[in-house]
């Protein structure tokens, strides 16, 4: 028996009988998640693009054969829970309103700017989560279109360290460079992908300078490509 066979055997030999998971809670949470996806799908679309709203809603809630990046929880919006399991009628929910200044990434999609901004969110049972970070596009007339919204689903949104990272899901009209935020005195954020180090661009949130918004240039990190690792360093190069 070679090493690989032994590894296979060991992985199987250590299987245990199924632990008892609370499937009632699983179904309850699954229903909530489904509802949030539908509401968020409506919320991310602009009023001017009702058709796009439907497309985004489908894309966020249902991507055939390919689950969404799961560490990035679905966007969360506050709304009464619909009793029906049918999709919420579009598009009565206004797009999320930016809190503080909008960060221009310098990335352009035609005439639109790729921008990042903090928005208010509400997560049931999580009073310490009140903000999320949105990736959107700003048109020349100032209209904002939210492509992806990431937020914590547990804990505290201002706890030190990295929070959720958003990756392109191919659901938006333009590719979304990977982005996220770090809480702390980061002066440099470096991602690793395929053994290569990639520096992120940084901007501090205008309402809380501890919140460091970061994103990766599409030329450096292809939108949708996942990082293998990420670290933050302070001004003296010390790892945070």
């Amino acid at each position: 028996m070679n090493e690989l066979d032994r590894l296979r055997d060991a992985m199987r030999a250590t299987e245990r009988s199924a632990p008892t998971l609370d499937l009632v809670a699983v179904i309850r949470e699954g229903r909530r998640l489904r509802t949030r996806r539908r509401i968020a799908g409506v919320g991310v679309a602009t009023l001017a693009t009702a058709l796009a709203a439907i497309v985004v809603m489908v894309a966020v809630g249902a991507r055939p054969g390919e689950p969404p990046p799961v560490d990035r929880p679905p966007p969360v919006a506050v709304s009464p829970t619909p009793k029906s399991e049918e999709p919420t009628p579009p598009p009565s929910t206004p797009p999320p309103k930016p809190l503080g200044r909008i960060v221009d990434s310098g990335v352009r999609h035609g005439a639109d700017q790729r921008v990042y901004y903090v928005v208010q969110v509400s997560v049931p049972g999580q009073p310490r989560v009140s903000i999320g970070l949105a990736a959107g596009r700003r048109a020349p007339d100032g209209t904002l279109t939210t492509d992806i919204l990431v937020n914590d689903v547990e804990g505290a949104d201002r706890s030190p360290g990295f929070h959720q990272i958003g990756y392109d899901e191919r659901s938006a009209a333009a590719p979304v460079p990977a982005f996220g935020y770090f809480v702390g005195p980061a002066q440099r954020i470096v991602g690793t992908v395929d053994g290569r180090q990639v520096d992120a661009r940084l901007a501090r949130w205008s309402l809380d300078k501890q919140v460091v918004i970061f994103w990766f240039e599409p030329a450096e990190l292809t939108p949708g490509q996942r990082l293998d690792g990420i670290i933050a360093r302070d001004g003296s190069g010390r790892r945070l």
Partner: peptide, 25 residues
């Protein structure tokens, strides 16, 4: 548990497809 929650949320779409593969991913 998280995987099952998310699988349930997409159940109507994946139940007739590869539900186990979805949950694994």
């Amino acid at each position: 548990q998280t995987a099952l929650v998310r699988t349930y949320a997409s159940w109507s779409r994946i139940r007739d497809d590869d539900a186990y593969g979805y949950a694994r991913r």
